[in-house]
């Protein structure tokens, strides 16, 4: 089953580089006042290799989304530091962070990824327009061909299925060839077939174009598309795993919860 779903994994053309695209050092994130404090991240130090596909797994409430938001500069750490490449994101002002998101980071959320008033194609090129950048037509064609939307490019999100909407979101994230793509349960709302399509697509971006992807997922099958898995529990990194298969992940999760 798993083998059928992950054909591309066996034919990597671009190798991970070994350079950290994103890092968190001693990250702590707390919510709430002293007496009712929640430690969403508890001294997390983790780094994500450039050109690799990393999955973050862990039980609900373990801090996966929080980790991702802090890595992307969407949210602030209570203490600790986040780097993108060599740059200290924690020290950045909002304006610099906006530029960072615009130019170096791509997002794929679980849902509500698209601006409802814009068509699929307009949504895809939106970050370019926000940055006042020229769209690389050739690359656009390549990306659009990958997402396989056919004649639906001129439809608005409300006229697309959930899977189609997610594919548009993926295309948008890849179009500006960001250094990093963050995806928070991108397949969480999809059935297994539509989900697999998205995951294959992400995998190919890593393999063929050297894209760096960090993805949060609950689903062992989805996580098995990654090169590496980081396990979180109670806001801490408790384990990791390289070149996982779905079965190995399941076994690992069972072992962790035991």
């Amino acid at each position: 089953m798993a083998a059928v779903l992950i054909p591309h994994k066996d034919v990597p053309t671009v190798e991970p580089t070994g350079v950290a695209a994103s890092r968190m050092v001693q990250g702590v994130k707390t919510y709430g006042a002293a007496d009712a404090e929640v430690r969403a991240l508890d001294d997390v130090t983790v780094s994500f290799e450039s050109g690799a596909f990393t999955a973050i797994m862990g039980p609900s409430g373990s801090g996966k989304s929080t980790l991702m938001h802090c890595l992307a500069g969407l949210d602030d750490l209570t203490s600790g530091t986040v780097y993108v490449g060599d740059e200290n994101v924690t020290a950045m002002k909002e304006r610099a962070r906006t530029r960072l998101r615009r130019e170096r980071i791509g997002f794929i959320f679980q849902a509500y990824n698209l601006i409802p008033t814009l068509t699929a194609i307009e949504n895809i090129v939106l970050p370019k327009r926000l940055a006042h950048r020229q769209v690389d037509e050739e690359w656009l064609d390549t990306v659009v061909a990958q997402v396989n939307l056919g004649n639906r490019l001129d439809h608005t999100p409300s006229e697309l299925s959930g899977g189609q909407q997610q594919r548009v979101a993926v295309a948008r994230a890849l179009l500006s060839r960001p250094e990093l793509v963050f995806a928070d349960e991108p397949t969480g709302n999809l059935d297994s077939k539509a989900g697999a399509e998205i995951l294959r697509f992400l995998r190919r971006a890593v393999d063929e174009f050297g894209q760096t992807i960090v993805m949060v997922s609950h689903d062992p099958i989805a996580a098995s598309y990654a090169d590496r898995i980081v396990f979180l529990a109670d806001g801490r990194v408790i384990d990791e795993m390289s070149h996982p298969t779905a079965d190995a992940i399941l076994d690992h999760l069972k072992a962790l919860s035991a």
Binding site: E94, T98, F109, Y112, N113, I115, L126, P127, L130, A131
Partner: peptide, 15 residues
Amino acid sequence: REMALLRALGADGRQ
């Protein structure tokens, strides 16, 4: 949500 998405995609406040 739409405004936030735009901001997440890199729109600055002025835009």
